[in-house]
Design a binder for these strands. Structure first.
Lengths: 152, 152
DNA sequence: TCGATTAGGTTGACATGTCAACCATAAATA
DNA sequence: TATTTATGGTTGACATGTCAACCTAATCGA
């Protein structure tokens, strides 16, 4: 169905990603104690929500299922990184970064930046950047959502 | 430490990978019942070993830890995809694809090929291929292994 | 107004991964 | 030869993910 060379490209692409990504994650977790998920969540709470976000928005933003997020938040809560409380106005849950979470995040930012530069950005040419950007465009989710708001 | 745009590239690169890879894996698992790991293992047994490989070689080839492989093989054994038996000549374990594993693999190959073409190859330009290949080269593990054989 | 849906979350079971500890055998070295 | 050390694997505990079932509070339609 597909040629040797084509299969090669696939394998190279996969392992290249796994290598680079793995190095960044390793630096991050070793030097900050945060996983990529932890960091993503804290980052969004801090930047998009000034410290708090509704659980559902967080799920969308992370592109995670509600179940996955729920489990993850439970663990982060135990570690003291975030807290949860019911919304007042409507139903739903507010996720709030704790002060411990905030300082952990602040400490982590430079580490993460450094890791991304060292293991990823430093290797990119202009061509790579263009290639990455365009490929992402081309393969983007076909979000012409199936008739959600279509005039029946 | 790093600019908005640089962070953007990182995010785009990550999500682009996750999207494409996720689609391929989803097709594969839905249509064949195999995970990527399952397929990788069966594929290697079939191609590199004519049906059997030493566990350790398999681990290297998959770039997995021995622990991870051991756990995974235990599960695959339960499902009847592979079997294990001790080596005769030296110590160690032979991993052998069962006939059920072999037919499952044969059925899976075209599905996997199709998925890779549909979700990945079809979107690649010549430039992308060059970019992917070269970036992989540039970021390849610096395998000048730390003094394994260095003259003290 | 009442029943059916939808939205927002939680939970438990199970699959998958990681890590450190362990065990046995082979090889190297004192 | 006796003691280390390296090799090849297994195991158990625990972190992380997925899936389906469940619960409750809106909301929609007849």
């Amino acid at each position: 169905m597909i040629s040797e060379e084509e299969m090669q490209i696939w394998h190279i692409w996969k392992s290249s990603y796994k290598n680079i990504f793995g190095r960044v994650v390793k630096d991050m977790s070793e030097q900050t104690g945060l996983s990529e998920g932890d960091f993503g969540i804290l980052d969004r709470l801090d930047l998009y929500g000034k410290g708090k976000l509704r659980q559902q928005e967080l799920a969308v933003s992370m592109d995670w299922t509600k179940s996955r997020l729920s489990h993850h938040l439970t663990r982060m809560e135990k570690r003291g990184l975030v807290s949860r409380e019911p919304l007042e106005t409507e139903r739903g849950v507010q996720v709030i970064i704790t002060s411990f979470g905030k300082t952990t995040l602040d400490d982590a930012r430079p580490v993460v930046s450094m890791a991304i530069r060292k293991h990823f950005l430093d290797f990119l040419t202009e061509q790579d950047i263009e290639s990455i950007t365009k490929l992402a465009e081309r393969t983007k989710t076909n979000s012409s959502s199936p008739c959600k708001n279509s005039p029946s």
